[in-house]
Design a protein around this nucleic acid. Structure first.
Lengths: 215, 215
DNA sequence: AAGGACGTTTTTGTATACACTGGAGTCATG
DNA sequence: CATGACTCCAGTGTATACAAAAACGTCCTT
């Protein structure tokens, strides 16, 4: 793996997982030494982070980790609504019914087996639905915007703790989306997606606490 | 201005204006010498182009200008529909009526004064509407996605020659969008945007010819 | 003659040295 | 005591040298 890729992955993970907090100055020499690479590949990594919006370049002062807070969650979800509602609509017109019916079944099952350590498995299942929708939409431009969006979303998600109850409800909402796509009903798929996003946003805003300072 | 910025701007302009055609290999030493910068800032420029989607990194062969053709126009407009329809909806709920009423008047006037050299002026006016909508939406995430989208759009636009008739019709559609936002009617604004995008896409697909090879 | 392997050459990837800009601290002066 | 300018320094921005990897051509073998 190239050193620049390694530096990029490391920095992006550190930012998404809040080890590098918003406002932190990413000094070139400092980070290069920390990650064991030279300044050249590190600069490339910083450029990619800036392009992602995870960092912003300050003239002369280097780049700092971009700030993100609850005020931005509304904005983030506005973009998510635009992209995912349209994606669901398009997917409903082109997707393979069997694939999404299978996903629907798995979401229903995930909704029943609440609690335990099913959280990781649920996130993976949700990721699979995203991938299936992406594949059905088959649009490189939408996919690129969605990929950028999901990075920011992962960072924001850490602001809210999700409880088992929310996970079960979310599973049912996801099952509705998958079901509507399997039924090839664009408007229902769009509505189900919008509903899911609304509930998801409400949950984040109601269950958000200031992040604990211990890692 | 930094050398890396200079290289980025130059390369991006060359790609958007089809001086660097899809498939062209952007060799580092070659482009560095052509633009009068060293390889280091040029590599940063190439990284940004890749992040924009204007170029793709090919293993071992360096980066090549990404291809774009009529098959991609549908995809591009799908993303445009998702972003701009939602933007119009949001803007209609928050915008200053006077500002958009003024824009509406100017579009109506531009629609009457057809022909001549009004093409440049019209493009600038359309750009002003975009900026006003961006400012009203006030959403950094949507804005970033839109900015990326518009770069690709500018490249595709060169595929179709727009005639005065289309410009006049487009002006009326833009006036309708501005008017709906000024009236603070989200659904009408969304519908007007969707209609405009539909007509715009139809025009491109009907009036597209293979690009002439002379520059 | 065709296919594979090896060597050459070109190009990318990385490191480091140097220049230049922006900032902070301090000293002098009003 | 406050404010301004000057100096020093930290850190970015750029260039170049070096190393590694990959693609292409050639030669040998079957």
């Amino acid at each position: 793996m190239r050193a620049s890729d390694k530096a990029y992955e490391a920095l992006r993970t550190d930012i998404v997982e809040w080890r590098l907090r918003p406002g932190i100055i990413l000094g070139e020499v400092e980070q290069a030494e920390r990650l064991g690479v030279s300044r050249t590949p590190l600069r490339e990594a910083l450029a990619r982070l800036t392009a992602d919006g995870l960092a912003v370049a300050q003239r002369g002062r280097g780049v700092v980790v971009s700030d993100v807070s609850l005020e931005h969650v509304d904005d983030l979800f506005a973009l998510r609504r635009a992209l995912e509602v349209e994606s669901a609509r398009i997917a409903a017109g082109k997707a393979d019914p069997q694939e999404f019916d299978s996903l629907r079944e798995r979401f229903l099952q995930a909704g029943r087996s609440t609690g335990y350590k099913s959280r990781e498995a649920y996130y993976q299942l949700a990721g699979e639905l995203d991938e299936s929708i992406d594949a059905a939409v088959d649009n490189r431009y939408i996919e690129q915007s969605l990929r950028s969006l999901r990075v920011h979303l992962a960072r924001v998600r850490r602001l809210a703790q999700d409880d088992p109850g929310r996970l079960a409800a979310s599973a049912l909402e996801h099952a509705a989306i998958a079901g509507a796509i399997a039924a090839q009903n664009p408007e229902v798929a769009a509505a189900a997606t919008q509903l899911h996003l609304h509930h998801s946003l409400e949950h984040i805003k109601n269950h958000a606490g200031p992040r604990e300072d211990t890692e």
